[in-house]
């Protein structure tokens, strides 16, 4: 045979090389992604670890679905996602449009607007906890500038259920609007300015051009920004715990942490937490899929663009 290496023909080598090149990534994903996922799913159907005599059970799930706190958490999460994503998107879009106008000092404005993005969630939590407490800096500030009487300090953190949620939405928006804005801004800057100019020349007002040209052309960017925000909003928890503590405003992820991490020593809570994490993953996947479906991201593209 005409085979100098004696092992593989040149054709076979060519076929193998691509697999060798992606092998590290595949191994990484199996070890650090697929394995934990499989273990979490299988673990959620076990009463205890297999080597400690655990058996297959739906008990974790029935316990979860019987727990009224789960439904509260589900509702709170859905409410926060719906309101905060909408609010953040509208504000971020407006800010991006503003900065994209490239007025004098817009660079400085962009820099200032990005500051909240650079802070870790814990720092944001600490900042707002100290700000929103009754003797916090927000009350002091309002009193100092004369808007508020020293006797009428606002008890920000002591509001009712919906007041709490709105407070969370505002704090969350404060932190994530910059990141949404940056994504939208980069999309806007990638558009050819002539697209909008043509709109103005052919009779469009600012609003018409925005609605008929800018927004449709930005659709891929908007889809990306929204999907990232929706996923992140479903996973909100740390800021809530920092402002109110556990179990005051139950949301899905906070309940996972609570069950898995805080109720230590109890196998049943741990298993319920595992079940909940599987449920949350399913919810995130379904919501993302639905959003992409509705926004037309799976549709055949109309053409290769201009």
């Amino acid at each position: 045979m005409d085979n100098p290496t004696g092992v593989l023909s040149r054709e076979q080598k060519k076929k193998i090389i691509p697999y060798l090149l992606i092998a590290p990534v595949v191994i990484y994903y199996i070890l650090f992604w697929l394995l934990p996922v499989v273990r979490a799913i299988s673990g959620s159907f076990m009463s205890a670890p297999a080597d400690e005599g655990g058996v297959f059970t739906f008990g974790n799930y029935t316990a979860l679905f019987k727990d009224p706190v789960f439904y509260q958490a589900l509702f709170n999460t859905a409410f926060i996602v719906l309101i905060s994503v909408t609010l953040e998107f509208v504000l971020a879009f407006g800010l991006a449009l503003l900065i994209n106008m490239k007025f004098h000092g817009s660079g400085m404005f962009l820099f200032l607007a990005l500051i909240p993005m650079s802070l870790p969630a814990v720092a944001v939590g600490a900042m707002w906890t100290s700000g929103l407490s009754t003797y916090g800096w927000l009350n002091s500030f309002l009193i100092r500038i004369g808007i508020l009487n020293a006797a009428d300090k606002i008890i920000f953190l002591g509001g009712g259920h919906f007041a709490k949620m709105f407070l969370i939405i505002i704090v969350d928006a404060w932190q994530v609007i910059p990141s949404v804005m940056v994504i939208l801004l980069s999309g806007m800057q990638a558009l050819q300015p002539e697209m909008m100019e043509a709109g103005y020349v052919f009779g469009g007002s600012r609003f018409k051009v925005l609605r008929k040209i800018t927004i449709p052309l930005l659709k891929p960017t908007i889809t990306t920004a929204m999907i990232l925000r929706i996923i992140a909003a479903i996973q909100i928890w740390l800021i809530i715990v920092m402002l109110f503590g556990y179990n005051r405003l139950p949301v899905l992820l906070e309940q996972i942490v609570l069950n898995v991490d805080k109720y230590t020593g109890s196998e049943a809570f741990f298993r319920k937490g595992m079940a909940l994490s599987v449920v949350v993953s399913l919810i995130v996947s379904c919501v993302s899929f639905l959003y992409l479906k509705v926004s037309g991201a799976f549709d055949e593209p109309a053409g290769k663009g201009v």
Binding site: Q192, E194, E197, A198, V201, S205, L217, G303, G305
Partner: peptide, 18 residues
């Protein structure tokens, strides 16, 4: 621009892909 009664052909066409 919209009130001028002028139309224009742009160098890169600027026709709307959507």
């Amino acid at each position: 621009p919209r009130d001028r009664g002028i139309s224009m052909v742009f160098q890169n066409y600027a026709i709307w892909p959507h």
